[in-house]
Design a protein around this nucleic acid. Sequence first.
DNA 1: ATGACATAGGTGCTATGA
Length: 263
Amino acid sequence: MKLATWNVNSLTVRLPQVLDWLAANPVDVLALQELKLTDDKFPHAAFKAAGFESVCFGQKTYNGVALISRTPAQQVTRNIPGFDDDLARVISATVAFESGSAASDIRVVGAYFPNGQEPGSDKFEYKLAWLQGLRAWLRTELATHPRLVLMGDFNITFDDADVWDPEGMRDQIHCTDEERYELNALIALGLTDAHRLFAQAPKSYSWWDYRDFGFKRNRGMRIDHILVSQALKPLVSACQIDKTPRHNERPSDHAPVLMELKG
DNA sequence: ATGACATAGGTGCTATGA
């Protein structure tokens, strides 16, 4: 089973690239972030024609998330139960293997974490509150669904290895101790960063600034992650970032992250 | 210190992203 996550920075602009990527990368589940469109504009038919089901949670202008899957998503929930939020950031569902039994179902949480803008700002406080709300809910969700994947745009780096310029970015947004504390608190729930289960090229990033030839100079950060629960960790057979679409014309600033599960 | 680039909304420019 293959799963992936991709912040597309407007599905309206990026839909042809997403369809091309799915044709080249036949995943079972793809989580999308930053759709930047409302549900009535979501291109269900285009995904259906490509052989995929889709569920979405959009809003005007900003945010918006979706799950694209080979088999229909079941038990779909939107945003974080127990945490009031006006912004469309989380969509979760149970998905089955193509020919699996219920015991092989996987709970997938696709999330677009808040950016936070600047440490100390209102948006930063919202980010921290959101992270605490996510953690409180995930604790119960993991108890109900031991086979769980949390993937998306976390907008947080784990450590200096995830940052092209650790000194310049020190205590800056995505790199503060407060954000990293919350990310590690998610890990402490029993989740594992799939990317770090494998040897990776140094300076492996998932996002590069559009400005100043950020991608060409590999001035990026690893802020898109796939976390797996303890029950799934032994099944993870691969995880990597696919930089290919970042070479496209009019690319998203984020690259997809892919993971493969055995069985 | 600021802007660089991209997107949506709306039609000149602001808000937001990371």
